[in-house]
Amino acid sequence: MSAPTTTPAPGRPVPLQPEPRRRGRRRSFGGGGPLVYAVAALVVVVTVAPVAYAFLGGFRSNAQLAADPVGLPSPWVVDNYVAVLTSASFWRYTLNSTLVALITTVVVSVLGVMAAYPLARYRFKGREALALVFTLGLLFPLTVAIIPLFLLVRDLQLTNTVWGVALPQAAFALPLTVVILRPFLAALPKELEEAAAIDGASRIGFFWRVLLPLSGPGLVTVGVLAFVASWNAYLLPLLVLSDPASQTLPLGVASFSTQYAQDTAGVLAFTSLAMIPALVFFLAMQRRIVNGLQGAVKG
């Protein structure tokens, strides 16, 4: 979810408090009649069908797919999946994607929380101006800067390296991260600082020993958002990673699908396997992702 996920939320930051949401309280109005369930079922089918088609199609042969595009696998063929899982390129793409996403996430989280700390908890002249720098960063999407960025990465000799993708991605993820983290850090009680000062901790000591552990939930949220955005990113890797050995999973999927265009079943297997890490990560983190997006948008 490259562009729109990281799309700047308009400038109203919202504290990402762990939500004390009352669940299931809307029992009063409208349960489910048959019509409601029918609509829900239709929505689920339309949403899931393409993904299910890809997974099941990967278990079919090209002859089966040609004979009947809708049918279930008969017999089930595992060759396509085996071929992908035993190919070195698939694992290389996965490894590259993982590296890029991890570096992006770590850089964004560390620099983001560091920058958000004084903006949230120091009083100094020019604080709002400094905060505005980050907020304004939201206005510049990667697409606008892509050409000079590509040339800059080339001049820094970072073409075909994970850093050439991870660092620019981290930079473009920073504004949203700071905008989300700042109110989160500001919402932690003031007494913490006073207690730490009485115990003799410096403000930097306070940051390391008190604030960082407490900002865990906020950090996980921004980290997950940055990770997913990086994992799915296409435009910047497309320009920066021209060497197949350095390419990430989205680039791998795209090139596999053009290279083996005739092998529909193989493409479906490759694509399905490429989806799995994102789906697993999403299922594990879905509450975080959802809360993060909601927190970035609503009050």
């Binding site: 994992w231 479906l268 994102a278």
Partner: peptide
């Protein structure tokens, strides 16, 4: 969860599947 799932998939991955569909 189901309705939100497509949003989390990479555009490229979803796009390749749709081209085949």
């Amino acid at each position: 969860v189901v309705i939100f799932m497509p949003y989390v998939l990479a555009e490229v991955v979803a796009g390749v599947v749709w081209v085949l569909l």
